[in-house]
Amino acid sequence: MAQATAPAMSIHDEDSSESRMVVTFLMSALESMCKELAKSKAEVACIAVYETDVFVVGTERGRAFVNSRKDFQKDFVKYFPLGWSAAR
């Protein structure tokens, strides 16, 4: 039986994949912090940009605000064009 092999990932692809995984992990940690802040009745939204991906976490109302404001997301991506991330 023939074996199919996946093409080898380049070092850049591996770095990119690893970086994306780190961003996802950190956003998950931020989400946990947001849940704790919500217990104090705080509304929070955190947004991160990695390459072409926009990650948004926070309280339900905080996420709803950021997700409803596509113009805000576009401006955020323009401000951080090289994949920088920040929380707000």
Rank of each mutant, 00 (worst) to 15 (best):
L30N: 05
A6R: 13
K39I: 07
V57T: 06
R69P: 00
A2G: 14
S85H: 06
C46F: 05
H12W: 08
E36R: 04
L37M: 08
H12T: 15
V56K: 03
Q73L: 13
S16R: 10
K70P: 07
F55T: 02
G58M: 00
E36K: 09
S68Q: 03
M33Q: 10
G62E: 02
A86G: 05
L26H: 02
Y50D: 09
C34N: 05
R63V: 01
M9L: 13
T59K: 05
K78P: 02
P81T: 07
L37R: 09
E31I: 00
V77H: 12
E18P: 06
C46A: 14
A87E: 14
M27V: 00
A2T: 09
D75C: 08
S10T: 12
F80L: 12
G62A: 02
E43R: 07
A45N: 04
L82K: 11
G83Q: 02
E31F: 03
Q73I: 10
S28D: 08
I11S: 13
A29E: 11
E36D: 09
L82R: 12
S19H: 08
M33S: 11
Q73C: 06
M27K: 01
K70W: 08
V77T: 08
L30Y: 01
A42H: 15
F55K: 00
A48W: 04
K35F: 04
T59E: 01
D71F: 04
F72H: 02
R88W: 11
A48R: 03
E60L: 10
T5G: 14
A64G: 04
S68D: 01
E36G: 04
W84F: 13
S40P: 05
E43V: 09
D13R: 13
W84P: 09
D13A: 15
I47G: 01
K70R: 15
V22Y: 11
A4T: 14
D75I: 11
V57M: 00
K70Q: 12
R20C: 01
D75Y: 05
K35G: 14
A42G: 10
V56H: 00
Q3L: 15
A42F: 10
E60F: 13
V57R: 00
G58V: 04
R69V: 02
